[in-house]
C-alpha cells in the first residue's frame, strides 16, 4: 500500500498504469460520520486537478469531493451508489469513489505519501 497518495482535501489516490483510483481517507469518513449519499462525477468528464467533482453527504453535513489529479473520469463505483456505508466501512478499498485516467502523472509528486499525510493529520488537532 505504499503507492497511496493523499491530497490536503483528504482524498486518496492509488495509481495502476495510467489510471488512478480515488476515494476519501479514513480520517475524512470518520469526520463526516455515516455517509448517506455520494454524488459522483460523470464518466467521460475531463477534470482539472483540485476541481470540485461531486459531493459526499452524511445526515447533517455535506462535503465537496475534489479530484487530486487531472484527467478523464473512466469509472465510478456503482457499489457505493447502492450502499454508501461502504465509504465508512472500507474507505480505502471497497469504498473507492471514481477512477481517472491521468493526464499529468507529475501531479502525483505534489501529493503526500502515507507518512506525510499522517503528519498532516497530527497538525489538525
Amino acid at each position: 500500500m505504499s503507492d497511496i497518495r493523499y491530497s490536503e482535501e483528504h482524498e486518496w489516490i492509488r495509481v495502476d498504469g495510467d489510471v488512478g483510483t480515488v476515494g476519501i481517507s479514513d480520517y475524512a469518513q470518520g469526520a463526516l460520520g455515516d455517509v448517506v449519499f455520494v454524488e459522483m462525477p460523470e464518466v467521460g468528464t475531463n477534470l482539472d486537478q483540485n476541481a470540485e467533482v461531486g459531493v459526499i453527504e452524511s445526515v447533517k453535513a455535506a462535503s465537496e469531493i475534489y479530484t487530486p489529479v487531472s484527467g478523464e473520469v473512466v469509472a465510478v463505483n456503482d457499489a457505493v451508489d447502492g450502499d454508501p456505508s461502504l465509504v465508512n466501512t472500507d474507505p480505502l478499498g471497497e469504498g473507492w469513489l471514481f477512477q481517472v485516467k491521468l493526464s499529468n502523472a507529475d501531479e502525483l509528486d505534489g501529493l503526500a505519501n502515507q507518512e506525510a499525510y499522517d503528519k498532516f493529520l497530527e497538525g489538525l488537532d
Binding site: F37, V55, E57, S58, K60, A61
Partner: peptide, 12 residues
Amino acid sequence: LSTREQHIRREK
C-alpha cells in the same frame, strides 16, 4: 435529506 437545505448547505 436535509443536506439540500440552507441550514446545512448554505450558499449551495
